[in-house]
Design a protein around this nucleic acid. Sequence first.
RNA 1: CGGGAUGUAGCGCAGUCCGGUAGCGCACCUGCUUUGGGAGCAGGGGGCCCCAGGUUCAAAUCCUGGUAUCCCGACCA
Length: 489
Amino acid sequence: MAKEITGRTEDYSQWYIDIVKKANLADNSAVRGCMVIKPYGFAIWENIRDQLDRMFKETGHVNAYFPLFIPKSFLSKEAEHVEGFAKECAIVTHHRLMNAPDGSGVVVDPEARLEEELIVRPTSETIIWHTYKDWINSYRDLPLLINQWANVVRWELRTRLFLRTAEFLWQEGHTAHATKEEAMEETLRILDIYARFAEEYMAMPVIKGIKTANERFAGAEETFCIEALMQDGKALQAGTSHFLGQNFAKAFDVKFLNENNQEEFVWATSWGVSTRLMGGLIMTHSDDEGLVLPPKLAPTQVAIVPIPKPATEIDEVAQKIMNALKARGITCIYDTDMKKRPGFKFAEQELKGIPVRLAIGQRDLENGVVEVARRDTKEKTSVALDGVDRYVEDLLKDIQNSLFQRAKDFRTEKTFRVDTFDDFKSIIDEDIPGFVSAHWDGTTETELKIKELTKATIRCIPLENDPEEGVCILTGKPSSQRVLFAKAY
RNA sequence: CGGGAUGUAGCGCAGUCCGGUAGCGCACCUGCUUUGGGAGCAGGGGGCCCCAGGUUCAAAUCCUGGUAUCCCGACCA
């Protein structure tokens, strides 16, 4: 009716945009490629952020904040790094405006040119490693485990709400270690946190893996990632954790004295997840009625609707239920809007992905029950008033689990093992392609050729991979393990 | 950044070909009646027709240049 959402099968991209806009998550802004995150969308992001922040702190990390601007010269100190980001940087060249001589408005004051241009950070390795040089002298200063929550800018040519915006919010961890082993452990520890968060909170199953050299972060020795499969059969890189080796330590001359009084370069990691997770959350669970949120991340977990409208007796019961739910740590609202009829409220709450709805009418009160509806399956049941809080608590857990299970079943169904290029291509060309597990000869050349021919890329070399002798689907050269291909966002 | 499409009320659109007082549906406001899956009737408010030039007596409409969004490519979290 008023809020028509394009069907997923009709036009998946348009469906995604409709969900983002109509569920009030975000909007395009007056600035090209930059979005406005609206209060409801931001509330979900805050839940994501708070949870991750807790997990980082539990593993010994602390938060700090580094500047938005990076002197241009910093960026060029690590050769691969600058090459990776040079093409998508916003650059500050001046520091003052002036009234236009012809009165047409405000213009840049040519006198106010900066001696050295500033780059709006696309990521903060350089400014942070420049700072770490002063912070690290001894092995006693290590490990240094720092995270920052920030915005970054990458001048993307083609943007999509949450999935790829010119400015986005993220966290970036930057750690320094005395040994290679420790740094590698850290890289994997974070990867585990990301995977656990994705699966336990977002209910989004992910594959942990290693990126190929071609897909590796600019400046990293090894990039680990979590990859998720969206409903349209395309993969989404949901988080990355990089083992940086000594690249940045060498570029920024960060050395420490070890226990034997010998000077060594420190070992580094960096890792991040962004507001892109919001896109993953939407595309993993939502349907043609609107957003579907896992209870653990839903800003409001339960909505109570009086049928047909607020009334003393109903209000009292609703209040009692709310108190009981809140005592169990469940967030809920009581929708007393007199202007909206129940059907409208139902539709609106479904659009916003509120996991559970309780409807209470005179008929229910007479029977001592309330109607409980779950967003994920749209099933409705009558539940005894007495103990409904416990029922809802269990139901929320059940929804959380079944969303995960449903997404996992979908991924299983859409993961294929193939041994010939023809089979590979026919799966990738499907409307809803999915992951394809296939042998690859290990060369960038073959990887790029496959991308050119099929648009599929190697998402990762899964960590939990059994070695298996085979031959590359394209070149027929020997291969020792399968890698995971997909079309990707 | 290349190709295509589209910018008209908060949203969705008609009007543009063929220039002549800016319309429809939803939403919004007021009132009454309603209320177990997006209510009905009546009345009302809201527009630099994306922006800037040009042509013309006259431009939403024609011309030029910008710009934004969406789709497809290349690039990328």
